[in-house]
Every structure is written in C-alpha cells, then in structure tokens.
Amino acid sequence: MSWYLTPADLSDLAWGASLLGAGGGGDPYLGKSLVAGALAAATATGRVQVLDPDELDDDSLVVTTGMMGAPTALVEKLPSGNEASLALRALERHLGRPVTATMPSECGGINSMVPLLAAAQLGLPVVDADGMGRAFPELQMTTFGVRGLPGSPVAVADERGSVAVVDTGSDNRHLENLVRGLAVRMGGVASTASYAMSGADVRRTAVPRTLSTATRLGRAVREANENHVDPFTMLGETLCRTVYQQGRVVFSGKVVDVDRRTSGGFVRGSAGISAVGTTSACELVFQNENLVARVDGRTVAIVPDIVTVLHAESGEPITTERLAFGQRVRVFVISAPVQLCTPEALKVFGPRVFGIDEDYRPVVPVP
C-alpha cells in the first residue's frame, strides 16, 4: 500500500539507499539536503506520496529520474536542484502526454533521492521500486532493459538549464554512450529522465519496494546506534526479511591505499584495506560502484552482489568517492535480488561486462 515520506524519513532513507548502492549512486547527504529543501518549499503537506507498484494502473506513465556521471564531480560542482524536473518536463513534451509518477532507476545515496526531489517540485507521487535493486554505472544496466524495455527517449539536463533529448530506439547500449558523452560535456554529471513505461511494465520489470526497504535498513542502523546495539547484527537481521535475503561482514580493517581517477564519466579505481594486527588484506575494485572484493587474493563477493564499505563502529556507508586513507571500516556484502542473477541479467551487468575474468558466484545461493 502507499505511504508518505516526510523529512523525518530522509536520513534513514539516505543511509539505507547508500548501503544498497554498493558505494555508488552519489552523495547521500547532498541528496537528503536537496529533498529536505524541496519538501519545505514545494509541497503544502511537506511530504511525498510513495506508491506501491501494485497500486499503479496498467496504463499509467512512469518515468525514472536520476543523475548520471562521475560522483566525484558532485564534490566540486553542486547541482541547482532543478535538473531532474527540467528533464522530466522535457520528456513529457517529447512524449506528448503527462507523467503519472516518477521512480528511481537505481538505489544510491543521491539517486534514490532525485525522484523525491522532482516529485516534491512537480506534485507527483514516487513509485516504491527501481531498475537495479542497487546501483550500476551504466544506463543500460537495468532490469527494465533486461526485460526488453527501451531506455529511449532520454531527456538530459544540467544546472544551467540546458536540455537535450536523445532517442536511439531499442539500442540501450548506444543510448548509454551518447548520454554519457552529454554528461561529460555538461561538466561530468547531469540529470536524466528515461525508461518511460506503463504501470504494467513496472510490475513486470522492476525490483519492488526498494525505497521502503532502504528506509527500513537506515532505521535499523540508526536505532541500533541509539540503543548501543551492534548495527551490523541489526542489518543482517533486517535484510533477512527483504528481497536481499542476507548480508554479512566479510572483512574488517583500515584503509591503507586508494587509487581513484575520474575518466570518461566514471570514477574508476581500487582500494586496499589491511586487517589490524595481521597480514590479511582486502582489495576492492570499483567503477562508480564496488564490483569485487578479494580477501588475501580470493574473491569473496562479486557483482551483481552488493559490496559496500561501512564505518567500523557506526555502520555509516562510505561511498567510493569518499574512501580515504586511515578510515576504520568493515566490508559488508549483501546478496543481490533474484532479478539480477538470471543468465539474461548477467549478460548485462555480470562480472565479465566490467572486464572481470570471473564467473558470478553468489555470496548466498539463490533458492
């Protein structure tokens, strides 16, 4: 059933979405601040309606909104806050009909927030679902695309008010290339409105109820800290009651090395974490999101399972652009929703798509 998201929920959602974002999806604090301002300024009630996918009419028009580009760009180039609304309205004009609701394309600190920002500004509801159940770095890497939906047409907007519409038909990979180029020219990051679909398509293709799940996860961490309970235990217990099935700590230590560079609209690199008092080490490889975790040379988790880095005591998620030498962390692994683990899905966002010469092995066997 539908529910209403209020400013009191934003911190929990930001933490939970950043946790599920596998180190990507943008800065959770920036997203939270933008939405809080929009709720205060643009809605009479100070809240946004969140619709369950089952409540959508079959012929509803749902459009995903989000940001794409290198998350590091947002550290230096703050958005105006209006980009997603501009992109959505431009796509409406192109399609010739009004949008019923917006929806995240992915989970992530800022990309779970952008649809809420657009919804507050435009008076729209948000659908409690997304197309990844985590964050991926490329536009075609969605369960929507795996199930045959085109990402085109896409409207792209920047903080200066520039807007472009790109249509590559059913070729989602070529769409990614063109829109990525626009995002680079727009300063490394831009907002998009894409994957226009019906309510029936949402139910057929999306990972359901990820906004409410992220909010529950963030709340579990917050309440664990308030009650002086281990947040990692609470996360594991909460995840067991979701589509993610299970999560657990696979390594603890101190960040001793970060090799990070921004190129082609992505943040790429690796990080090294050493266990305190032993010679054991963990290596992370990322492209916007963490892709693989190796402990002492052995792969312990690999995409599409979710590899995330959390503060060793509080459980606060640390995104790839904010990893830094000396941080005390725990590497936490979450099993991917079943929609991400089919043979068809692995052809779109499995390890080999990212140049990793390994087969996917689930951290938790899919039943």
Rank of each mutant, 00 (worst) to 15 (best):
V243E: 10
V250G: 01
E316C: 06
G253C: 00
A293P: 02
A224K: 04
V221C: 08
H228A: 14
V307P: 03
G272Q: 13
S335C: 03
G272S: 14
R298E: 04
V309K: 05
V292M: 09
V331F: 00
R328F: 06
R330M: 03
L323W: 01
D259P: 02
V267F: 07
G315I: 00
Q327R: 15
R260E: 06
T278P: 01
F325Y: 15
Q245H: 15
V250E: 10
R261Y: 11
H311G: 07
L284P: 12
V295R: 10
I318Q: 05
I306L: 09
T238K: 11
A336F: 10
F251V: 02
Q327F: 12
V267E: 14
D305N: 00
T299A: 10
T279Y: 11
V250M: 05
E283H: 11
N225Y: 06
Q327M: 15
Q246K: 14
R330P: 04
G315M: 01
G265H: 14
E321P: 12
T242L: 06
E313G: 03
N288Y: 11
S270F: 07
S280L: 03
F266L: 13
C282K: 04
T308G: 04
V276L: 10
L310T: 04
V292I: 14
L291Q: 01
H228D: 12
G326A: 12
I334N: 06
D305G: 00
V255E: 07
T262E: 13
L235I: 02
P231A: 01
V338C: 08
A224D: 02
S314Q: 06
Y244D: 03
P304G: 00
T308P: 02
T242G: 08
S274M: 14
Q246W: 15
A275N: 03
T299E: 07
I318F: 07
L291I: 07
V256Y: 10
G236K: 06
R268H: 11
Q327V: 08
N227D: 12
T320H: 13
A224T: 01
G269E: 04
V276C: 06
P304D: 02
Q327T: 09
A293R: 01
V255F: 04
D296H: 08
